[in-house]
Design a protein around this nucleic acid. Structure first.
Lengths: 158, 158
DNA sequence: ATGAGTGCAAAGGCTTTGCATTAGG
DNA sequence: CCTAATGCAAAGCCTTTGCACTCAT
């Protein structure tokens, strides 16, 4: 559902303001197309592919979607998620929605979100700490995804 | 370096036998092209893209590389790794080489391998256990990758 | 006015596929 | 022999780009 000026106040008070601000910092504008993309991602509970975004809002030309998502990614508003298939998926940046992880289906390639209990997340952070020192990498984040088969694929016998 | 009949005995006694067996189980043959691909992946210490594989062994046509890697993947001999760029990367299946993780460079997209201490790995397994019950997924594995910047990209100021 | 954004169309680039030929069992 | 595998070429498909037009500032 779209967020108008009224519902904007209770539903997501800062999201659009933050997005506009981050874009402006990059010398970019928060246009209506970009707002629509952000709203579509806000309403989704999982990363969406560009074909999925386009079919939800036929108004946006393909090239604008690709270009705007790149701009939004560079500005730190959205993040690109690669799973196991050829599709790039997009979701709002973690600092806007909270840290989470992905369930990646080996059967159909679908991606869904999940969060883990704080205690478990703390374990993961400890693991990252333990690894950080041993590598030449400047570590900026981690990705802890579970691979398996989603309900539909299990039902379909794979 | 290629593995001939002699060195095969000490270097990797079971790899090719195992590969042949898994392919046969799928009604597939372990041909010379497929053997070359497996050897290239065996000698690499990180997942390789198809362009990388082709430039290391000019003899294999592009289409055969794609087709054979798909066959090898279906047979469970190799695994496909998606990072942050558009390239699919391939590595030997984990049960052939041991469980490991990936360092993914946000700067250049390169992927390298690393292993974590058993104690840390145990922490990760505990986390997987904790999550498994809460999801509709049939979990088959996990992926714990670190995102950051590799030595080269850090040196290049990104 | 002035540059960013837009949208259509065309091109890029990784990947897949059709088809005739070759080779493995 | 007979089917799988091969290899060349062409097509597919996601993605990017060129260019002229529009819009916001």
């Amino acid at each position: 559902m779209a967020i108008d000026a009224a519902s904007n106040l209770d539903a997501a008070p800062n999201l659009h303001t933050t997005a506009a601000e981050r874009l402006r910092r990059d010398g970019q504008r928060y246009t209506s197309n970009r707002r629509v993309l952000v709203e579509l991602l806000e309403d989704a509970d999982r990363p969406l592919t560009i074909p999925e975004l386009l079919e939800r809002q036929a108004g946006i030309p393909q090239s604008s979607a690709y270009r705007n998502l790149s701009v939004l990614e560079r500005a730190g508003v959205v993040e690109r998620v690669m799973a196991t298939d050829e599709f790039a998926r997009f979701e709002l940046a973690e600092d806007l929605t909270g840290h989470h992880h992905h369930l990646i289906c080996s059967g159909c390639g679908s991606v869904s979100d999940f969060v883990v209990a704080p205690a478990v997340e703390r374990r993961l952070d400890e693991a990252v700490e333990a690894i950080a020192g041993e590598t030449g990498f400047r570590i900026e984040g981690h990705r802890f995804d579970l691979i398996g088969y989603c309900r539909d694929c299990v039902a379909a016998g794979r």
